[in-house]
């Protein structure tokens, strides 16, 4: 018997309150980190540094939002890192090799991501391969394909004027000169809004939670579970395509060797943000806060001149701490 079967007095809480708690916890930690670092170093709170943090959040944040969708269904996606690179390479092929205009490159990257997600989703839903294995396979396939298609060399976007502005330009700064927030952050914001809307207000979103909550019950309700699940993976993949564009724009090149490791950072952000790895609950806002925590941590530790190696150690410890806090609170409740 699982704990969910046990009615508990006093636990008559409103839906999502458990996730809300964790989000508060994450938000509190974020504020604590911000206060701590700004006390420790005057450099930290400078506008240029804040912008650097936001810029660093954008790629990981978009990836993490993509993974959030899959994790809420009770699945996991290990392929988002290399998928992002694959999408970047595809846009490089379309823009630099074929010389097509900018919008085609963007659409190609998003389309490639959606297609990859469609494949992962099909493996999981139709072939009944566990998500861990299916996306592990996709991770390697896409890593290899990115290298093959690019001929293992970076593809530069020097012939596509304005490509680098997708991430590094600042539409907001152009309107409000005092707020030079890079477009990458704006895009993260828009993607997060879109996905939060989909999760909260659409059938696809409701089924995402329902699948994570009890897939068999959904199937026996006459819902075509396989199709919806594939749809969720495809949507997630399309968002990874956006991340591909963002990182390519930031580097003004598609780096085929890049990508591995990003998936774990994304999953870490999701987990810190309070999304349950067993599925059924989670929020986009939590995930974005999780991604911010990781970026603030990396940035703050660098400013305090903590060695890169130690930054990684701290990040790992934070993940364990975040999940422990969640578990401990749930056991008490």
């Amino acid at each position: 018997m699982t704990t969910a079967d046990t009615p508990q007095g006093g636990a008559l809480s409103r839906i999502g309150s458990a996730g809300a708690m964790q989000k508060m916890l994450a938000f509190g930690s974020l504020v604590l980190l911000l206060v701590g670092f700004s006390l420790a170093s005057p450099q930290f709170m400078q506008v240029s540094n804040i912008i650097a943090i936001l810029q660093a959040t954008s790629v990981n944040g978009v990836l993490a939002v993509a993974v959030t969708l899959v994790i809420i269904t009770g699945g996991i996606d290990l392929s988002v890192g290399t998928m992002m690179t694959f999408c970047a390479v595809i846009s490089g092929v379309v823009l630099t090799y074929w010389g097509l205009p900018l919008p085609f490159g963007v659409l190609a990257a998003i389309g490639a991501g959606a297609f990859c997600g469609l494949c992962s989703g099909t493996f999981v839903a139709k072939l009944k391969i566990p998500p861990f294995i299916a996306t592990l396979g996709m991770m390697l396939i896409l890593k290899g394909l990115a290298l093959v298609i690019s001929g293992t060399r970076p593809i530069y976007f020097n012939d596509t004027p304005g490509f680098d502005l997708i991430s590094r330009g600042s539409l907001i700064g152009w309107v409000f000169p005092s707020l030079p927030i890079p477009n990458g952050v704006l895009i993260l914001f828009l993607v997060a809004l879109l996905v939060a809307y989909i999760l909260g207000r659409t059938v696809l979103g409701r089924y995402t939670f329902a699948l994570g909550s009890n897939e068999e019950a959904v199937r026996l309700s006459g819902v075509n579970v396989d199709a919806w699940k594939i749809g969720i993976y495809a949507l997630s993949g399309a968002i990874v395509g956006v991340a591909g564009i963002l990182i390519a724009s930031r580097l003004n090149s598609a780096q085929p060797a890049l990508g591995l490791g990003y998936e774990l950072e994304a999953i870490a952000a999701v987990v810190i943000g309070g999304t349950s790895l067993s599925g059924g609950r989670g929020t986009v806002l939590g995930t974005v806060i999780g991604a911010l925590i990781m970026a603030v941590l990396t940035n703050g530790l660098r400013i305090l001149s903590v060695a890169q190696e130690w930054q990684t150690v701290v990040t790992g410890a934070i993940i364990i701490l975040a999940v422990y806090a969640d578990q401990a609170r749930r056991r008490k409740g």
Partner: peptide, 14 residues
């Protein structure tokens, strides 16, 4: 019901 009929973590309306 718990395994095949209901999404236990979701509310009555859902």
């Amino acid at each position: 019901r718990k395994h095949f009929g209901l999404a236990l973590g979701m509310d009555v309306k859902d």
